[in-house]
Amino acid sequence: MTTKPTEKRSRFEPEPMPRRDFLGLAALASMAAAFFVSMFGMLKLPKAAVSASPSKKYSVALPDALPEGEAFVPPGRSVAVFRDGEGVFAISTVCTHLGCIVKPNANGFECPCHGSGFSKDGAVTKGPAPKPLPWLKVSKGGSGFVIDEEATVKTGTKV
């Protein structure tokens, strides 16, 4: 309280205190700053620093007798791997609409959730899916093939 009452003051009148009270303002400001910085820490916490799912890059051993046009699905993965005369390729089986897992069928793939259909090379033929199923990067490596789910390649690329 820094100002002196010049004359009899009543409690209805505003006190000009806040403008002059440097100490009080500095105290409140530093508290606000501390809260502000701690907010950063708290907001940072819920975003995990590292993904809890397995690596998106893995090797698969294709069965020797995989008929042309038949999908091989590595256990636990949402990928269909094919082999034909030109080579090996992998198509993601995650629907581009809202992420359900598509099922291979005679014409290509179909999605059980909202009825999207895809041709054998992943192009949309039906339903709400906005984009074709992406082709994933396949490379020769180790004892078989290495699939990288995080890298897509142009439709039609075979190894």
Binding site: M1, L23, G24, A26, A27, L28, S30, M31, A33, A34, V37, S38, F40, G41
Partner: peptide, 23 residues
């Protein structure tokens, strides 16, 4: 009240410094 303001000021600055150091 002055004492309390000093308490608030110094504690807050201390908290601020430690938070930055931790970050």
């Amino acid at each position: 009240m002055k004492k309390n303001k000093y308490l608030l000021l110094i504690s807050s600055l201390g908290v601020l410094a430690l938070l930055v150091a931790a970050a």
